[in-house]
C-alpha cells in the first residue's frame, strides 16, 4: 500500500523507509510539516505516519488541517522518547493510533496494517469467516467446522478482533487496547494466557491450526496455506 511518512529524524526515517519498503509498501517521505501537509492533502495514501514534533508545522496541526479538509486517511502518530505520552490529545485531534518511541518495528507494521484495514468500507455482513471458523456477532455464536464453540464474553471479543484483522499480525498491546480497552505495556505473558485458552477452544480439536504466534511480534489468525 502507499504510505506517507513525515519524520524529521534522519535515522528513524531511513529505518522506517527501509522496513516499510521491504515489507512491500510504497513509501513517500518528507522531513518537514509544511511539505508533509501538502502531500497528505492529496489524499493519495492509505496510511499516514506522522511524527508529533516537526519543523515548520507540528504533527497535530497537520492532522487538524487534514480532517478539516475532509481527508480521512488513517493517521498513526509517533511521539519521541521523553515527550509526555499524550495519547488523548493526539487521538482527539483526529489521529487514529498512537505509538511512543522506542517501538518495535513489528508493532508499527501491525498497527499500520490494522489502520489500512479500518479504512476499507465496512462489511455490512454480521458474520466473520476465516476458513471453517465462523463468528456471528448478532447471535453471539462461534462455530468451527459446523461445531459450536462456547466462548466467554471476553474470548468472543478477542476472537472477533482477531478475525476482523485476519491475515494481519496483531501485537499484545493492540489486543490489550482493543479488547480490554486499556493502554499499557503488560509486563508478563498475561495476554498469551488468553490466546492459548482461545486456541484450545478453536484450534485444538480441529485439524489445521488458524491462530499462530508470530515470534517477536504477536499473533496472527489466518487461513491455512
Amino acid at each position: 500500500m502507499r504510505i506517507l511518512v513525515i519524520e524529521d529524524d534522519k535515522e528513524a526515517a531511513t529505518y522506517l523507509l527501509k522496513g516499510l519498503t521491504e515489507s512491500g509498501h510504497v513509501v513517500d517521505h518528507t522531513t518537514n510539516g509544511e511539505d508533509g501537509l501538502h502531500m497528505a492533502l492529496t489524499g493519495a495514501y492509505e496510511v499516514d505516519v506522522i511524527d508529533r514534533m516537526l519543523p515548520r508545522r507540528d504533527g497535530l496541526s497537520i492532522i487538524t488541517a487534514m480532517r478539516s479538509a475532509e481527508i480521512h486517511t488513517p493517521v498513526l502518530i509517533l511521539s519521541a522518547l521523553g515527550e509526555v505520552d499524550d495519547r488523548v490529545e493526539g487521538l482527539r485531534v483526529g489521529g487514529d493510533d498512537y505509538l511512543t518511541k522506542p517501538f518495535a518495528f513489528a508493532e508499527l507494521l501491525a498497527r499500520i496494517d490494522a489502520l489500512a484495514r479500518r479504512s476499507l468500507p465496512e462489511h455490512s455482513s454480521t458474520r466473520l469467516l476465516v476458513a471453517d471458523l465462523e463468528l456471528d456477532f448478532l447471535k453471539h455464536k462461534v462455530t468451527r467446522a459446523d461445531k459450536t464453540v462456547h466462548l466467554q464474553p471476553r474470548e468472543f471479543r478477542l476472537l472477533k478482533y482477531m478475525m476482523q484483522h485476519a491475515g494481519q499480525v496483531v501485537t499484545r498491546t493492540m489486543l490489550l487496547e482493543n479488547v480490554w480497552d486499556y493502554h499499557f505495556d503488560p509486563q508478563t505473558n498475561v495476554i498469551d494466557v488468553h490466546i492459548s485458552r482461545l486456541r484450545a477452544k478453536i484450534d485444538k480439536d480441529f485439524g489445521e491450526p488458524l491462530l499462530h504466534t508470530v515470534r517477536g511480534a504477536g499473533y496472527c489468525l489466518r487461513e491455512p496455506d
Binding site: L81, G82, D85, T100, P102, F103, A104, A106, F184, D185, Q187, R215, G216
Partner: peptide, 19 residues
C-alpha cells in the same frame, strides 16, 4: 528471532522506565 526477543525485553525495560 532470538535476538529480536532479547531486544524486546530490553525495550520493555526502557518503556517501563519511561512510564
Amino acid at each position: 528471532e532470538l535476538a529480536i526477543e532479547d531486544v524486546s525485553v530490553l525495550l520493555k525495560t526502557f518503556n517501563a522506565l519511561l512510564s
